[in-house]
């Protein structure tokens, strides 16, 4: 597996790509925060927030529909909010019978459910855009600048760096299991659930030991290359006037959205 197998970064040079990563992280979090602050059924503000995402998409040169195409990842979780449809008191919109139960969807419940899903869908698009236009090590570096404890950012950097190595290891373990598990077509595979769980447990234990021993070699190799307990970068972040301007502009847009969301 190649070392960038998990990268979500799309190479490019655009206004958004070249923005200081700190600005991008702050604006993304502020955007998600702003969504959480919007009241239910603030349609105009939701529309403005979507326009904000579309503009960011366009400026990043990835195409208008880029984040939209990947934005359905959080949708299954909407199941958790489905009870809001029936449980919030309000005027009945429609009722139906299902599994011998009467369900009544109320107008207040419908508004709440739709608002929750829209907020989630807008927020996830912004997060998708952030990793698409910022290299992951730069995001971690920005987190470090934003006062996230160094030990955490170093662990995250190592996790990112070695994930593909250990995924390869998992692939080898899974392939070995496949190779040893013959099965006839249409027949259930052998072994009880207990037995299968034990096999996977042994694989996890094996993976743990291999990772543990590998971390020793990793550490020695890094020492040999001048590792001093923190990760270095050849891209020192320099905050420029343009970064500040765009960041402030984005924040002003968010404030306007809040105002639009509270108009009577």
């Amino acid at each position: 597996m190649h070392s960038d197998a998990f990268d979500r970064y799309h190479h490019g040079h655009s206004l958004i790509h070249d923005l200081d990563p700190r600005v991008k992280v702050v604006v993304t979090v502020a955007f998600i925060l702003s969504n959480a602050l919007l009241p239910d059924a603030a349609w105009l503000a939701f529309l403005l927030a979507w326009a904000f995402i579309l503009i960011a998409n366009a400026l990043s040169g990835l195409g208008l529909g880029f984040t939209f195409r990947r934005s359905f990842i959080a949708l299954p979780f909407a199941l958790a909010a489905i009870t809001a449809l029936f449980s919030i008191p309000g005027a009945p919109v429609m009722s139906f019978r299902f599994l011998m139960q009467d369900f009544t969807i109320t107008d207040a419940g419908l508004l709440r459910f739709v608002s929750i899903v829209i907020r989630s869908w807008l927020s996830v698009q912004m997060a998708i855009l952030l990793v698409a236009v910022t290299e992951f090590p730069k995001i971690v570096h920005a987190l470090n600048h934003l006062r996230v404890p160094t030990i955490l950012t170093v662990i995250i950097s190592f996790l990112y760096r070695y994930l593909f190595v250990l995924t390869d290891e998992v692939m080898r373990l899974l392939r070995a299991r496949e190779a040893r598990s013959a099965g006839a077509a249409g027949k259930r595979g052998g072994g009880s659930v207990m037995w299968r769980a034990r096999v996977v447990g042994n694989m996890a234990g094996q993976l743990f030991l291999r990772s543990y021993e590998r971390s020793d070699r990793v550490y020695n190799a890094m020492l040999a290359r001048g590792y001093k307990g923190e990760l270095m970068t050849i891209h020192p972040h320099r905050f420029q006037a343009g970064d500040l301007l765009i960041g402030l502009l984005a924040l002003v847009c968010l404030v306007l959205m809040q105002v639009a969301g509270r108009l009577p």
Partner: peptide
């Protein structure tokens, strides 16, 4: 620290 990083990947 590198151990914990690799363990996180684990």
């Amino acid at each position: 620290v590198p151990l914990m990083g690799v363990m996180a990947a684990f």
